[in-house]
Amino acid sequence: MDLVSGIVVYVILWWWILFMVLPVGVRRETEVVPGNDVGAPQKTMLPAKLVATTAIAAVVWVIVNQIVRSDLISFRDMIKDWM
């Protein structure tokens, strides 16, 4: 995987994992103030979730990179079989 492909894969993984991590640990507000959404969280814990997302995405990216480099799953062979 070249540099640009690696960066693109990492960014896609990062956003995908962020959307999976966002709902973790969210508690609803018990006392709703008029004008606020009923489902609004008490604390978002966003900085911790961003750090966790970055770490998890890095680990998943290393795994994906190793799979691509080792030709364990050869995408070129898959395309040849389809054509």
Rank of each mutant, 00 (worst) to 15 (best):
D2C: 02
D2R: 05
L3D: 05
V4E: 06
S5K: 02
S5D: 01
G6W: 03
G6M: 07
V9S: 04
V9G: 00
V9T: 02
Y10M: 03
Y10G: 05
V11A: 08
V11S: 09
V11Y: 00
V11R: 03
V11L: 12
I12D: 00
I12Y: 06
I12S: 09
I12K: 09
L13M: 13
L13N: 13
W14M: 01
W14A: 07
W14I: 01
W15F: 11
W16Q: 04
W16G: 11
F19Y: 13
F19S: 13
F19R: 15
F19E: 14
F19I: 14
M20Y: 13
M20D: 13
V21C: 07
V21Q: 08
V21N: 13
V21Y: 06
L22C: 07
L22M: 15
V24R: 10
G25C: 03
G25H: 05
V26N: 07
R27P: 00
R27Q: 11
R28M: 10
E29Y: 01
T30N: 14
T30Y: 05
T30S: 14
E31V: 11
V32I: 14
V33F: 09
V33R: 15
P34K: 07
G35I: 02
N36G: 03
N36C: 12
D37Y: 11
D37I: 06
V38Y: 15
V38L: 13
V38G: 07
G39V: 06
G39H: 12
G39Q: 09
G39P: 00
G39I: 04
A40I: 00
Q42I: 11
K43S: 09
K43F: 08
K43M: 07
T44A: 08
T44F: 10
T44I: 04
M45D: 09
V51P: 00
V51R: 07
V51H: 01
V51L: 09
A52S: 11
A52E: 06
T53Q: 12
T54H: 08
A55D: 02
A55W: 09
I56E: 06
I56H: 05
A57G: 06
A57T: 06
A58F: 14
A58E: 02
V59N: 07
V60R: 09
W61K: 12
W61I: 04
V62A: 15
V62L: 15
I63T: 13
I63F: 12
V64E: 06
V64Q: 05
V64T: 10
N65G: 09
N65Y: 13
N65V: 07
I67V: 15
V68I: 12
V68H: 06
L72F: 15
I73G: 02
I73Q: 01
S74I: 07
S74C: 13
S74Y: 11
M78K: 10
M78Q: 14
I79N: 01
I79M: 05
K80E: 03
K80Y: 02
D81I: 05
D81W: 11
W82Q: 02
M83E: 14
